[in-house]
Amino acid sequence: MATIKGAIVVDTERCKGCSLCVVACPLNILALTQKEVNKKGYPYASQIEEDKCNGCSSCAIVCPDGCITVYKTKL
């Protein structure tokens, strides 16, 4: 069975840590950073479970600042 693998790239300097992507992710694999912050002092979104993303783009569509780029491939 072909599996779909996705990956996201977060523009961490543009991210404001609103956490709308965390709520929107259907697989619940996004979270805000606990300790790291960007130059503006915001915690930023990051993927907490590396190989679970399926590239559905929900996080990128709801992101108000357009910080998320999504890639997807079939294995």
Binding site: R14, K16, D65, V70
Partner: peptide, 21 residues
């Protein structure tokens, strides 16, 4: 493999809106 990126019309200036607006 790109499926979603912000539109090229939207430039790189950081928006002044509050987080989540």
């Amino acid at each position: 493999n790109l499926v979603y990126k912000k539109s090229t019309l939207l430039n790189d200036n950081a928006m002044h809106y509050c987080p989540g607006c």
